[in-house]
Structure formats: C-alpha cells, structure tokens
Simulated assay, not measured.
Amino acid sequence: MQLNAGCELQFEAQGPTPLVLMLRPRSGAGQWIMREEYQITPSVNVTEFTDMYGNLCQRLVAPEGPFSIHFSATVQTADAIDVEPGAPYTPVEDLPDDVLHYTLPSRYCQSDQLGDLAAEITNAVEPGYDQAEAIRKWINENVKYQYGTSDASTSAVDTANARVGVCRDFTHLGISLCRALNIPARMVVGYLYQLKPMDLHAWFEAYIDGRWFTFDATQQQPRGNRITVAYGRDAADVAFTTQFGPMTLNDMKVWVDPAEIAEN
C-alpha cells in the first residue's frame, strides 16, 4: 500500500538551540521511499549523518523564537508483517556480532531484573518465535494502554509493576522480557496506518532464526502498513528530536493516509 505520512512540529526556542532530528525514513525491508519533503522555518543550515544503528539524523541550530519542522513522505509499504510460529531460537553463540548487544540491558530496558516474569509468561512455550509472541500477547492482555500514566523516565520495570502505559512503555517491556530470555530485541519507531489515536508509534523486533521479526504489543493482531523511521536499543537511541538547550514543543501533528495513485 502507498501511504502519505508525516509530522509537523511547532517549537519555541528560548535561545539558539542545537538539535538532532531523526525524522527521515529510509528504504529497506518492507518499505520504499517514493517521495519526501522537508521544510524548516525559518531556514537554517542542516547537515546529515548516519548513526551507529543506520538511522538518518539531521543536525541544526534552531534560532531564538518560533521554529517549525514539517516532514512528509510517500512510502510503498508491506500490507502484512511476517509471522512464523515455531521459528527456532538462535543460540547466543550463533548471533551476528552486530546483533549481540541487543541481548544486554539498556537504560530503559532492565532485562536483568525481569527474568522471573519472562520465565512465568513463557512457561512451557517453545524457545524462539513462540516465546516472543507469548510476551507480546501477555503485554497486550495485561498492560492497560492509557495516556498520561508514564513519562520520559518510565522504564520497563516501572511498567511491569504499574501494568499501564503507552506504546513506548509496551515496547520497552517487550524488549526487556525477550532479552531476559537471551532473545535479541530492539526498539522501532515510525508510523502505523490506522493507528488510533494517530501519533508517532513504537514497537519492537526480536531476532529469531537468523532474522528480525516485528511484534507490536499495542495491537491484538499482526498488522502491516508500517513505516520505520529508526532503530535502537531503547527510547534513548531513537528520539525524533534531541535538543541541547531550552526549547518548548507547543504543537505536534501526525498523519498517515492512503496515497492517491494517478491513473494512466
């Protein structure tokens, strides 16, 4: 499916403020970037680099006063995500070097503290894909989705105890429980078609049987039509905006709509 997706951010900077943005998706598995547009008002110099996870990042300095960022893209997306019940666990000794660090605890994903819960959730489940799916299903059924119940400091352990949160919290918990079983897991942020309410979204991927599979604990069934923007260990690696100074986000709009395809 071809989707038009994007976001508009309205800031007020109290002084010149360095920013790192992570708003541009790139073509890859399940998506092809057909068109994109980036508008920054007022115009400033922008440089771009690729971080250690392969994400496209933009550096700039926002001037004092109102500052806006508009990004939009037309993307060809996969209508479904791959599922493979029964896919076997990949032993740690067989993991690629660049996947191994996704088995370790990170800032928001204290997998070393969630081993008992992971074992309880996956009791009698075959190692591998079925464990990750059991974790996704357990979070979906046992953690309440509710805005305003967490903040930027909320961790996976906090969510496991409170049993409430938003997509970021669901994702951190899913990652942590997978890692507690030595299944590599990483955070993904981007867009999901027909997400309700519409917002920037987060889910997780688990490395099983030699490849990455998508799991979204906020959804009851596997859903495609996703646009990936960034990957990382947890939210600390995949912030859409990172500011280095006093700056207020006054408004944010996000949209994902079917693209109008011109007929020949």
Rank of each mutant, 00 (worst) to 15 (best):
P197G: 11
T17L: 08
F204I: 05
S111Y: 00
L100M: 13
F240H: 09
K196A: 14
P16L: 06
E260Y: 03
R168I: 12
A235I: 10
F67Y: 12
W32V: 15
R163P: 00
C109T: 15
D82F: 01
D51Y: 08
W32D: 12
S153A: 14
D234R: 02
A262D: 11
K196P: 00
T241Y: 14
A217Q: 02
S111N: 12
T103D: 04
Y207L: 08
P85G: 04
P91Q: 06
L200Q: 02
I40H: 04
D51P: 06
D251W: 09
E263H: 14
R226S: 07
F11S: 01
Y89E: 01
R168D: 02
C109K: 03
G232E: 03
P222D: 07
R186E: 04
A156E: 02
G128Y: 13
I139G: 02
A73R: 01
Y89N: 02
D216K: 04
G28P: 05
L200I: 11
F240R: 01
L177S: 07
P184S: 12
E263C: 09
R107D: 10
Q113A: 14
T218I: 06
F71P: 01
R163Y: 02
S150M: 03
D51G: 06
A78T: 06
E64M: 12
G174Q: 08
L200R: 03
G128A: 02
E263Y: 13
F240G: 06
H70W: 14
A162E: 11
T149K: 08
T17Q: 04
I227Y: 01
A156Y: 06
M187I: 13
K196E: 15
R59V: 06
C167V: 10
D234S: 09
E120F: 11
G190P: 03
R233Q: 12
V125K: 10
N55T: 07
A230M: 03
P184Y: 04
A13Y: 07
F67C: 11
A124I: 09
Q2P: 00
L249V: 05
N225K: 15
I81Y: 00
Y102K: 09
L23I: 15
K144Q: 14
H101A: 15
E36V: 07
E126G: 09
F215P: 09
D112G: 10
D94W: 10
V189I: 15
R223W: 00
N45C: 08
L192R: 13
N142A: 06
D151K: 03
S72E: 15
L177D: 07
T154K: 04
D199V: 07
A124E: 15
L9G: 01
V189S: 10
W32N: 12
L200N: 05
D97Q: 13
G28A: 12
P258W: 00
